[in-house]
């Protein structure tokens, strides 16, 4: 088929449809695996030459340490790369792919660097922090690989704004419907309108436990109200119950959305602070090693 106007003058355009884990047919997984194999083989070969395993102080230890420290600093740069939108050729997906696999390879490189010598000191602290960063990162990989479908499956085509809007409109309906009610009835509606908290703190969003949800309590109290005085009130109460039920469903949808988002973001609350702690500990580790040389 010919197309009027011919081909694009191709700038770099990523049209390939591959996720960050599969990027370029697992290029970075292969690089990281290769790196680990080479490092293990090297370690094995060096260990055979001497009596005890090579420690961090050996030439191999310095080599592995330099590689490891370099990697750690580079891996931490992802945070900058993500936020600096330059015009040139780069792909954040490629960065993330490399970040994931090279980050995992640190488990091998840094462990061999320690020469299996651990203790209650700054050196082991740096190692432990690094493992914490990697472990939280692994959690992130799991979250990124499994949660997106749930995230979008849950919301369908409803946007966050639409969810909030519909809760707002349900509140308005409740307000209007409550006009014929007596004081007890009105206070129940007021409870639902004024006290309902959609999200709450991070922990609450993460666990999704809303047993004390004001709308839920209002619904319970509504059902226990004494029989209404007039038919008009009775009708209003029936409608209010329906709307509160709808509101409960909207709330559940929004809260599930927030819960999944919280998991998708939650691991970062460990990953990022631990990274900064690691960078500090790493600096201390390097400074102390060279000071007490």
């Amino acid at each position: 088929m010919t197309q009027v106007g011919g081909q694009h003058t191709e700038r770099v355009r990523q049209r390939t449809h591959e996720g960050f884990l599969r990027h370029k047919s697992f290029l970075w997984a292969q690089v990281a695996t290769g790196l680990c194999v080479v490092v293990i083989a090297l370690y094995w070969w060096v260990a055979l030459q001497i009596n005890e395993p090579p420690s961090g102080g050996s030439w191999l230890g310095y080599l592995l340490g330099t590689i490891g420290a370099g990697l750690i600093v580079w891996l931490a740069c992802l945070g900058v790369r993500k936020r600096v939108i330059t015009a040139g050729h780069y792909s954040l997906k490629a960065w993330v792919s490399a970040h994931v696999y090279l980050g995992l390879s640190l488990v091998v490189i840094a462990t061999l660097h320690t020469g299996f010598q651990f203790g209650w000191n700054i050196h082991t602290l740096a190692y432990a922090l690094m493992m914490l960063v990697i472990a939280s990162g692994a959690l992130g990989i799991w979250a990124y690989a499994t949660l997106p479908e749930r995230l979008h499956g849950n919301r369908g085509e409803t946007t966050r704004k639409q969810m909030l809007d519909s809760i707002e409109s349900q509140d308005r309906q409740l307000h209007d419907l409550a006009q014929p009610l007596d004081r007890a009835g009105a206070s129940v509606v007021k409870l639902s309108i004024e006290e309902t908290e959609i999200g709450g703190g991070f922990w609450k969003r993460l666990t999704g436990s809303y047993d004390d949800c004001a709308n839920r309590r209002a619904l319970q109290r509504l059902r226990n109200l004494p029989a209404p005085a007039s038919a008009k009130q009775a009708e209003a109460l029936t409608r209010i119950e329906q709307v509160m039920q709808q509101k409960a469903e909207t709330l559940a949808l929004a809260r599930r959305q927030m819960q999944i988002t919280a998991v998708l973001e939650g691991w970062l609350f460990v990953h990022i602070p631990a990274t900064f702690a690691l960078l500090a500990a790493l600096t201390a580790h390097i400074v102390s090693v060279f000071t007490y040389w």
């Binding site: 355009r13 990523q14 939108i85 780069y90 954040l92 960065w95």
Partner: peptide, 11 residues
């Protein structure tokens, strides 16, 4: 597309 960390965005 360049800034998508997971490769979800394509043109």
């Amino acid at each position: 597309v360049r800034a998508c960390p997971t490769g979800a965005a394509i043109r």
